[in-house]
């Protein structure tokens, strides 16, 4: 792996940063799906028998009132749930192209590399902008200085940050605005060359302009990545989602094509939520 990257020409790291595997696969087969996923926090069950599908190169929005377990679900998808003390998956499974991600031989860190996650609040690390982007890369790959530079540029280009920060790559990342920080977090996740992007309410701490910017990015990135976005904002889901999963009290209420769910929800609870009658 190491030698492979060392010998690789830098140009191959330029965008689109997408592995060849998913590209040719034009069918809407699920890249990621769960079967009867259950999880608990301490003794309290959070998810019960959640089965969802996230098709390749589509945006799947997970929605539901606060406390319904949507964050728990999205964290379970790339095994970051187990980082929360007391939280764990108790049953069922998460499958990425038919590989059980909770199988014994699967390393949770490898899962997190392939399935990246963006958190609610941007968390810039205490280092320069450039080093923030390279944080995961420096761990996972051994690149030449030239390759690293190209990669930083590519990832920042991809998230629309390059023109904004190209002159201050070596300044601390916490000087950026909130929206820029969130795009930086996206860039450093992209630098890991993931295949799936999970976003846990990525706009909840941002102003409207930054929110719009992130939504644009989601629309652009879905050509190359499978995206799962958690949101409690119905209009945001309408703008970005191809597919919708509606959750309530730890269970899946409805799921399907976005238009179908938005236009004619099958359950009254789902209709109530979409109409804003349930928070």
């Amino acid at each position: 792996m190491t030698t492979q990257f060392r010998s690789m020409p830098a140009t191959q790291l330029r965008p689109p940063l997408v592995p060849a595997v998913t590209r040719g696969d034009a069918s809407a087969a699920a890249a990621l799906h769960t079967i009867d996923l259950c999880s608990s926090y301490g003794d309290r069950g959070v998810l019960t028998n959640v089965s969802i599908e996230c098709p390749v190169q589509q945006v799947t929005a997970i929605m539901g009132p606060s406390g319904c377990g949507k964050s728990t679900l999205v964290k379970a998808l790339n095994r970051t749930l187990e980082l929360t003390p007391g939280a764990r998956v108790t049953g069922g499974g998460v499958f990425f192209r038919d590989q059980d991600l909770y199988a014994r031989e699967v390393d949770n860190r490898a899962v997190r590399k392939v399935i990246g996650i963006i958190h609610q609040r941007p968390q810039p690390f205490p280092m320069s902008i450039e080093e923030n982007v390279l944080f995961g890369v420096r761990f996972h790959q051994r690149l030449t200085r030239h390759q690293r530079h190209d990669l930083v540029e590519a990832c920042l280009q991809r998230t629309g940050l390059w023109t904004e920060v190209r002159d201050r790559l070596h300044q601390p990342a916490h000087q950026l605005s909130g929206g820029q920080q969130q795009r930086l977090c996206l860039a450093r996740t992209l630098a890991n060359q993931p295949e799936v992007l999970l976003m846990d309410e990525p706009c909840s701490s941002l102003d409207p302009a930054s929110t719009e910017r992130i939504e644009q990015l989601v629309a652009e990135l879905k050509r190359d990545y499978t995206i799962v976005i958690v949101t409690h904002n119905v209009s945001q889901a309408k703008r970005v989602a191809d597919r919708v999963v509606l959750m309530m009290e730890g269970q899946v209420l409805e799921q399907g094509e976005a238009e179908q769910v938005f236009d004619c929800p099958r359950t009254t609870a789902g209709a109530d939520f979409l109409a804003g009658r349930i928070g």
């Binding site: 980082l83 860190r109 997190r112 944080f135 995961g136 761990f139 996740t189 890991n192």
Partner: peptide, 25 residues
């Protein structure tokens, strides 16, 4: 805890997160 989680969710080891994020902080 958010710093640690953000670091670990990039698929690195705990030690790497501690060395590059937690200790500098």
């Amino acid at each position: 805890a958010g710093d640690r989680e953000a670091g670990l969710s990039l698929g690195v080891t705990r030690f790497y997160t501690i060395r590059r994020i937690v200790l500098p902080r």
